[in-house]
Amino acid sequence: MTVLTRAQRRREEQKTGPFWWAGQVLSWLALFIVLCLLAVMVVIPRLGGATAYTVLTGSMRPDFPPGRLVVVKPVPVEAIEVGDVLTYQLESGEPGVVTHRVVSVASSLSGERQFVLRGDANNTDDAPIVAEQVRGKLWYSLPWLGYLNSALSASQRTWLTWLAIGGLLSYSLVMFTGAWREHRGKKAS
């Protein structure tokens, strides 16, 4: 039979009280949310060879309002069809991009495929684009995360990823150390 001192009993009671449980639930929930955000905004796109963009205008309302995160993945030009949502460069080689829906696919006299796109909320088509301008086809999108994506630079996202990894490793080390101490304390009594 193990006899606990008053201080040990108080510590054990604190580990099962309502505040302890609330703290545990909140910390696990926060950890889960951070891991999910890192997964959908950084890890999954990077592993899939995709790029995340933020919708900045209302041209794709109602499906893609401003602030929505769209993740686009490169696809073969032959796989692009009418109705697909593409992200393309306004001018080939320039950083400015637009995300709109394909309304027609045609071929030039030289046989090069051209695409005409339009925002869902727009009345007019965009100027035709060529394959070199296409950055990718919509893979998935998430509401409101575009605001977070816009607020963070690529280097900040990298730092946050490493910070989260370090935090998780530190948390697991603290938990392991606490369990080891508790196990050692029970053996000594």
Rank of each mutant, 00 (worst) to 15 (best):
L117M: 15
V134D: 06
L109F: 12
W144E: 08
L168R: 05
G93R: 13
V70M: 05
M60Y: 00
V105S: 02
W159P: 02
W139V: 00
N149V: 05
W162F: 08
G146F: 08
T158F: 11
G111K: 11
R135P: 09
Y147I: 10
S104W: 00
E91P: 00
G167E: 05
P128L: 00
L168C: 06
V85S: 05
L148F: 15
L169V: 14
V103Y: 00
P65E: 12
D125P: 03
A106P: 12
R113K: 12
V85T: 09
M60L: 02
R61Y: 05
V134K: 06
W162R: 14
W159L: 12
W144P: 04
T87A: 09
D84M: 08
V70R: 06
Y147N: 10
D125R: 14
G136F: 00
W144C: 11
D63C: 02
P62R: 03
V97R: 14
W159H: 11
E132P: 01
V77L: 09
L163Q: 08
L169N: 12
V71I: 15
T99M: 04
E94H: 11
P65R: 08
G136Y: 00
Y147V: 13
R113D: 01
A121R: 09
T158I: 14
P62V: 06
G93T: 08
G136K: 01
E132V: 05
W159S: 08
F115W: 03
Y140K: 03
V82L: 09
L160Q: 11
P62I: 03
S104E: 10
M60Q: 05
V174A: 13
P66Q: 06
D84L: 04
N122M: 15
Q156F: 15
V130E: 12
V174M: 05
S108K: 15
V103I: 11
L145G: 03
I165E: 04
W162E: 09
G96Y: 15
L109Y: 11
S59A: 02
V105E: 04
E132Q: 07
D120L: 13
S108H: 09
V85N: 04
D126K: 00
V103Q: 06
R68S: 10
S150T: 14
V75T: 05
W162P: 03
V85F: 07
T124C: 08
Q89F: 12
L142C: 03
T124F: 13
Q133E: 12
L69K: 14
L69T: 06
K137V: 01
V102W: 00
A79K: 12
R68N: 13
Q133Y: 02
E94A: 12
V97F: 13
G167K: 01
D63Q: 07
G96M: 15
Q89Y: 04
V85Y: 08
T158E: 13
L173G: 02
L169R: 02
N123V: 14
L169F: 10
T161D: 09
G136I: 01
S155R: 15
G167S: 06
Q133V: 08
E91M: 15
L168N: 13
E132R: 14
R135Y: 08
G166H: 10
I129S: 11
D126F: 04
W162H: 14
A127C: 05
I165Y: 09
V70T: 03
S155F: 14
Q114N: 13
E81Q: 08
A79R: 11
K73W: 11
L169H: 01
S92L: 10
E132M: 01
L160E: 06
S110H: 14
N149R: 15
G83Y: 02
G119V: 10
G167P: 06
L169C: 07
